[in-house]
Design a protein around this nucleic acid. Sequence first.
DNA 1: CTGTTAGCGCTTTCAG
DNA 2: CTGAAAGCGCTAACAG
Lengths: 353, 353
Amino acid sequence: MSPRRVTLADVARSAGVSPTTASLVLSGRGREMRISHDVEQRVLKAADELQYRPNAVSVGLRTGTTRTIGFVSDTVATTRLAGDMIKGALEAARDRGVMLFIGETEGDAELEHRLLQAMHDRQVDGIILASMFTRTIKVPKEITAAPAVLLNALPKHPSPLSSVLPDEVEAGRTAARVLLDAGHRDDIYLIGAGPGMRNVPAGSVAAVERLVGIREVLGEAGVKIAGGRVCRDWQPEYGLDATRAILASGRPRALICFNDRIALGAYQALSDHGLKVPSDVSVVSFDDHPLAAWMRPKLTTVALPHYDLGRRAVDVLFDEIGHHRDGTARTGEVHRVPMPVRHRESVASPGAV
Amino acid sequence: MSPRRVTLADVARSAGVSPTTASLVLSGRGREMRISHDVEQRVLKAADELQYRPNAVSVGLRTGTTRTIGFVSDTVATTRLAGDMIKGALEAARDRGVMLFIGETEGDAELEHRLLQAMHDRQVDGIILASMFTRTIKVPKEITAAPAVLLNALPKHPSPLSSVLPDEVEAGRTAARVLLDAGHRDDIYLIGAGPGMRNVPAGSVAAVERLVGIREVLGEAGVKIAGGRVCRDWQPEYGLDATRAILASGRPRALICFNDRIALGAYQALSDHGLKVPSDVSVVSFDDHPLAAWMRPKLTTVALPHYDLGRRAVDVLFDEIGHHRDGTARTGEVHRVPMPVRHRESVASPGAV
DNA sequence: CTGTTAGCGCTTTCAG
DNA sequence: CTGAAAGCGCTAACAG
């Protein structure tokens, strides 16, 4: 079968030195320990010839650190968005020479519990607990067994855990600025929430934060939001209904849709009404869902930075691991990742009537 | 910080027995060793009270088996399809109490090399080497360090590795039967390959296998393929071109498109020609890409079983691991996973003109 | 500058 | 039926 792996002892023997010396040389601390150049070369040569590779399991047992982290999400592989988060995390991990365990909880607390246990049993250095869409979650107690960060999620109850989230408030500002920059000052309507801060779908972090940003920028510019409609669910059909309702009483020049699926419905309503995007009505949205590039005209939208979120999560996790190692207190910070605009074809100046 | 993990020694001490005894009881071999019921209960109680969990790293070092497998693919997280494969693998692994390392090579051999090494260093029990789309690959030599299976890939050179693949030949038969069952016997055209076995895009396993199945069933039914066109690439634009070319000279009653993206192009060409699907022309396709359900009329297609492929791969891998353990020879088999038809709206009887 | 020794947490002979 | 002891492969005191 497969030949027995070569061990440090093999290398030491072959180089005619003790395991300690071999270990020192191979861990790069040979210089610092002022090991003779001759011995160093012998060890290096032996290791190279025997193709020695340290047994990471053994190192893990001995040092207590496995260069392995866990990525647990409620639903993962299945969607393109989540896929990008994983990809970001994967690449950041690779840059640090760390491997990723992945697991899916499907929103099942029991499963989540077992997964976290299985990972801790394997002595992961830390855990990323990710949510598919931004929301507040109840942090499982067993997570505290190792450093951890929340990805795309906020702790429902006070917790020492740090979070990594898209910067939704700034995204709201961005969307508003896109319209302002195009020259819109009147007849700007919101689809999906608002215009008042009370009119927001329950439990949606994204909704309130986006709204805050929008109102802030528009307010500062002295622009009044003409109107807005909540949608019970951010799906095309509700976007259609909401837009239709607005069209019944008003005459929008610009729409800020709270996500791309809503925008799809809005397009439909506009078209039914004989209104053209963007010449009659500009539309700006959020998420940069794949469908945004499929829509005609292509949708200008403020993108959810899935890939960056993934990367950032491992960066933050490693900070936590560092703090954990040298006893520094947990930070419990909230890290916001910028949401970039994708300028496409759905926004135009209102002048061109 | 986090309290030290409780060890087997702690349990043994608390139960007033030796570590050996505790180990025996907890590994379930207490009965077999005829440990006294009293002692057994004491150990169990202690373990439970202390919330003992074995340190998997230690077990891994001691026993050489880590209950961990590696999933390496050329590109993975990014696409919905690959995501489903991972999900299948994840769930199958979970059923067996095994964790998954995942890694992406991006088609880079050097990266692949390093990833496989990193996994072997961590003593994975086996590896799944997956490809995004079915193809032949050069098997990296370092893979032989542990049991392994190829997923969605065939070894380019003779190899002892088993493979798990979609059953493309049977899928071809299925597609042909769908048409036959609807009553089609004439003017059946192929878009993407064929009708002769020479007319196939280079290097596409799926193309030749699907064609074989199609020709077999149609041939046995005494039905002659009216024509067909290769597409240099299986993209909508080429599907459109190919269909247009066929429309220039013939009058198809049914199209077998080699994948859904091609079918999208075919729809377009048909529509440009004033032909309705399915009343004028039936269309059947392969893959069940998400877009198949978006097309109007919804596309009847033979699905790539990504989820099942993932599950199957871990099943096969575990067989290999079993064989590896008891020294039985590697099998090197090719496992085919059925491709189910998704009956939708693009096929009708040719009678209804 | 290098080697001896111990031990991470667990399983597994081998003796009682 | 139970315990003592060894050892998986490696690192880290501590001596020399």
